[in-house]
């Protein structure tokens, strides 16, 4: 193994500074006393109080969570189905079309997706609100879920399913008792991805929502267009920390499991 060269150390340091400094500054200045965001005037948590008392933010947060939860659940079901179809259903008419329809929404500019869905909802005469946002988010999130799940299915030893059939399972039982438990981690990461994609989305939600539903990104958007504000800094800090804690916890748990599994495997071979 080569030692880290100076070049590598420097590029990593600068790279991660670039990735994390802006957010760090944001977090630090969310504790700024002053209304003027760029001038430090002492430590204060008063903006957090402002955020938590601001019912418009809280309402929007509630709408966002509702939308994210519903759409990620739907997207997980649909995306998992699509993944199974793509990986396991063999050849059928329309396979290419389906694979195109799964792939395309991921590379589609959000403005186009949003516009087209809005025009659909209008021509169907649908009232726009939480329901239409859920439909829209489900549609693009299911594609991501399907990619995550199918990559797991592809590496999945198909003889496990055959073994289940061989031992007397019906195809449905084989899926429930063998396939699903094994791909569960991928399904869960698909769900998490769908959830955060929905939480994060501004453009598609702006197109597809009506006056009755405002999501948090839409709320933040309308406020940040006017410039930087300490309240938004505090709100952003809360959101960044929630996500960071979630992701770090998940990856630590995952890492611990992997390490334990490796140790046990090594122990088993030694024992033999």
């Amino acid at each position: 193994m080569r030692r880290m060269t100076w070049f590598n150390v420097t590029s990593l340091t600068l790279g991660f500074a670039f990735l994390y400094l802006p957010m760090l500054i944001l977090i630090i200045f969310s504790f700024n006393e002053s209304k003027l965001v760029t001038v430090w005037a002492g430590f204060s948590t008063k903006w957090y109080g402002e955020v938590l008392r601001n019912t418009a933010f809280l309402d929007a947060a509630w709408v966002t969570i509702k939308v994210a939860f519903l759409s990620s659940c739907l997207a997980t079901i649909l995306g998992t189905m699509a993944a199974i179809v793509m990986v396991r259903a063999g050849r059928f008419r329309g396979r290419t079309v389906l694979s195109g329809m799964i792939y395309a929404p991921m590379v589609m500019p959000e403005v186009i997706t949003g516009l087209s869905l809005l025009l659909l909802f209008i021509s169907l005469g649908m009232d726009r609100g939480v329901f239409t946002i859920v439909l829209a988010h489900t549609t693009f999130a299911m594609c991501y879920v399907s990619v995550v799940v199918s990559s797991r299915l592809v590496s999945f030893d198909q003889s496990l399913e055959e073994a289940a059939l061989d031992l007397g399972c019906s195809p449905v039982q084989a899926f429930r008792l063998v396939t699903l438990p094994i791909i569960a981690p991928a399904v869960i990461s698909g769900w998490l991805l769908a959830f955060t994609l929905s939480l994060d989305d501004l453009v598609i939600a702006s197109f597809t929502s009506g006056p009755s539903a405002t999501t948090l990104p839409m709320k933040i958007w309308s406020s940040v267009r006017l410039g930087v504000s300490p309240e938004i800094n505090a709100l952003s800090t809360i959101m960044i920390l929630v996500v960071a804690i979630g992701v770090i916890t998940a990856s630590l748990i995952n890492k611990r499991n992997v390490v334990r599994q490796r140790r046990e495997e090594a122990a088993a071979e030694k024992l033999a």
């Binding site: 030893d157 496990l160 055959e162 073994a163 289940a164 061989d166 031992l167 063998v178 094994i182």
Partner: peptide, 11 residues
Amino acid sequence: VNMMFQSYALF
């Protein structure tokens, strides 16, 4: 008929 798989296919 039962089968023992090459990869063992243990769950």
